[in-house]
């Protein structure tokens, strides 16, 4: 019979905290970069010239239709043949940002498409250029619709960040699995790992809810003025 003993978790606590820090670090930086990539790609796909549109479409389709694991291996193992050797954490951040950026651009694009085309025409008619139209008119309206799916992309990002353990980054998953194997305590470490990931993703979901409410109250106030 398997005897449950949570003392092993207490002993592994310093390691676990380190792992959480690494996961948070990678996720935070990747989410910022992915957000920027998504923003730029969405802009190019909706308002760029034909060739830019085609290039960004190819980027999105290639990234979305190949596994993240392959992309990670590609950055970590194939790119050093062409350029500088990057450390595993940087490789993880590059791959995660590129991957999540493609998904985020799709989220933005659907948000942009949900804004009426009259808004675009009116803004252009008032003499705003394409970038101003995007920044001042289209994007503020799209952002409200976009927050829930954006949050789920960030949740996916945190979960996907566990894949960097296969390129030798000691992130949360790596620490959990190593603890489980070293102490032969699979059940305890699985429960703790599940709990920690649930806490991280739950935190993002709660934050997104708050931001959504915050933005809608601000925008309502502006409308009243």
């Amino acid at each position: 019979m398997y005897e449950i003993d949570f003392n092993v978790i207490v002993n592994a606590l310093p390691q676990l905290i380190k792992g959480i820090k690494t996961t948070l670090f990678i996720s935070l930086i990747s989410s910022v970069v992915a957000f920027l990539i998504g923003f730029v790609i969405a802009f190019l796909r909706t308002m760029g010239t034909a060739s830019l549109r085609a290039a960004s479409t190819i980027y999105v389709e290639v990234i979305r239709n190949t596994p993240l694991l392959i992309q990670l291996y590609f950055v970590y193992k194939a790119l050093p043949g062409f350029g500088p050797h990057l450390n595993p954490v940087t490789c993880g951040i590059i791959a995660l940002s590129a991957y999540t950026g493609a998904y985020i651009s799709e989220v933005f694009r659907s948000g942009i498409n949900s804004v009426n085309s009259e808004q675009y025409q009116a803004a252009r008619g008032l003499g705003l250029n394409k970038l101003e139209t995007f920044n001042l008119v289209i994007f503020p309206q799209a952002i409200r619709v976009v927050i829930p799916p954006l949050a789920s992309q960030f949740i996916n990002l945190v979960k996907n960040s566990s894949l960097v353990s296969v390129i030798a980054v000691t992130d949360l998953f790596y620490i959990i699995y190593k603890g489980a194997v070293d102490d032969f305590r699979f059940f305890e470490f699985f429960v703790v790992g599940a709990f920690l990931y649930m806490a991280l993703t739950g935190f993002i979901a709660a934050t997104a809810n708050t931001i959504e409410k915050f933005i809608s109250t601000i925008q309502e106030k502006e409308v009243r003025i």
Binding site: I155, K159, N160, S162, L163, S165, V166, F173, I176, Y177, A180, F186, F189, F190, G193, A194, Y197, M198, T201, G202
Partner: peptide, 11 residues
Amino acid sequence: RSIPLILFIFF
């Protein structure tokens, strides 16, 4: 839905 796949597959 709130747990990474790699955690499942290894454990």
